[in-house]
Every structure is written in C-alpha cells, then in structure tokens.
C-alpha cells in the first residue's frame, strides 16, 4: 500500500507563497517570532526606563563606566554582518551558491568578532570590579547585553549549521534553502537592531 492511500498529505506552502497571503509559512513564522522578541526587549527597555527614572541616586554615566570604543566597533561589525547576510541571500537568488557560502561564512565571522569584543569588554568591567550586583546600572547592562549576546550566539549556531551539515540542502531543495537564509537573515537584522538601540541607551545616554 502506498503512503498516499492512508491519507498522508504534504503540508502546503512550506516553500512557495500562498497566493492570497503572499507568504510562505516560515516567513510568516519568523515575523511572528520577531513580534514576540520586540515584546521581550520592549519590556526590558521599559524596565530600564522605570528603574532609571525612579533612581534616588544619580544614574551612572555610561560613557564613563563602560567602554565606548569597543562597543562602537561592535556596532559596525554587526551592521556589516547584516549586509553580508543579505549578500548571501542575494547570491543564492542569483544562483551563485558558492559565493553565497562565502558571505554566510563572513557573517559567522562577524558573529565571532562581536562575541570576542564583547567578552573583552566584560573582562575590562570585571577588572574594575563591576559586576551585576554592583548597582542597578550594571545590573541592567549585564542583563540586557547578556541576553542580546545569547541571541547573537543563537544566530551563529544557525549560520554554522548552514555552512556545514545544513549546506547540502541547497543541492536538492534549492528554493527551500534560499528561504532558510532569508529567514535567518530577518532574525539577524533584528538582533542587529536591538544592539543599535542598546548601544546609545547604555553607553551614550
């Protein structure tokens, strides 16, 4: 008996867009996921505002307590990586998977650079005896950048997967693979965007 006879059916619109919504499932899924991420970081930013405005002692000045230059370099690293992941996707659409693979690798490299610099910054803070429990400024700094760092790490794991084990998918399911890069790209832009908010609020304001 064939599987079909028992009602085994494929899930529609996993690869191609549904005509009336114009979206394939994964893309809608990642947009919804990002909506929830907006709420997560939105809650943390609101907490920051509430704690800062409610503070009875003067709020520490970020540019004196933290290390602005490494953070600024990190900002550019992330922005660059956001461009790289688009290049990867664009090259996939141009049917140049080999070039695309290089851009994915470049994105992953940026991830490593970001984490490395971030780690260096943390170690500088620790050397100054600045810990989460020091005061609420450092508490929120470590919590938010830590959570953001976890998001970067998550993205890096996905990129690493696409470079290695997940790479072979492009041979037999090219469109699906292209979609996957588009989806992780959307996520990566979001992670970038969060940093672009974090940098001025924590380091400059």
């Amino acid at each position: 008996m064939s599987a079909e006879a028992h009602g085994h059916m494929e899930i529609p619109f996993t690869v191609h867009a549904r005509p009336d919504t114009g979206l394939y499932n994964g893309k809608l899924g990642v947009w919804l996921f990002l909506a929830s991420e907006v709420m997560l970081f939105g809650a943390l930013f609101s907490s920051l505002i509430l704690i800062r405005t409610g503070s009875t002692t003067p709020w520490p000045e970020g540019w004196k307590e933290l290390h602005v230059y490494p953070a600024m370099i990190n900002t550019f690293v992330l922005i660059a990586s956001s461009v790289f992941v688009i290049m990867a996707w664009a090259n996939l659409r141009l049917r140049k998977p080999k070039v695309a693979r290089m851009w994915i690798a470049a994105t992953l490299l940026c991830g490593f650079a970001f984490m490395g610099i971030k780690g260096y910054e943390y170690s500088l803070s620790f050397a100054h005896h600045h810990f989460p429990k020091t005061n609420n400024f450092f508490a929120i700094y470590f919590t938010m950048t830590g959570l953001h760092g976890l998001h970067v790490l998550g993205g890096m794991v996905v990129f690493a997967y696409f470079l290695t084990k997940g790479w072979s998918m492009h041979e037999h399911e090219y469109q699906r693979f292209t979609n996957r890069i588009e989806i992780v790209g959307l996520y990566w832009h979001f992670v970038d965007l969060v940093w672009i908010f974090l940098f001025p609020t924590l380091y400059l304001l």
């Binding site: 909506a35 929830s36 709420m39 997560l40 970081f41 939105g42 809650a43 943390l44």
Partner: peptide, 14 residues
C-alpha cells in the same frame, strides 16, 4: 500568548 508572555519572560529573567 505570543505578545503577552515575553514581558513575563523578561520579568522572570530579572
């Protein structure tokens, strides 16, 4: 569920 739970997650982390 999608939009209301994340703030509790944030609160839980804090």
């Amino acid at each position: 569920l999608l939009l209301a739970f994340p703030p509790l997650e944030a609160a839980g982390v804090l």
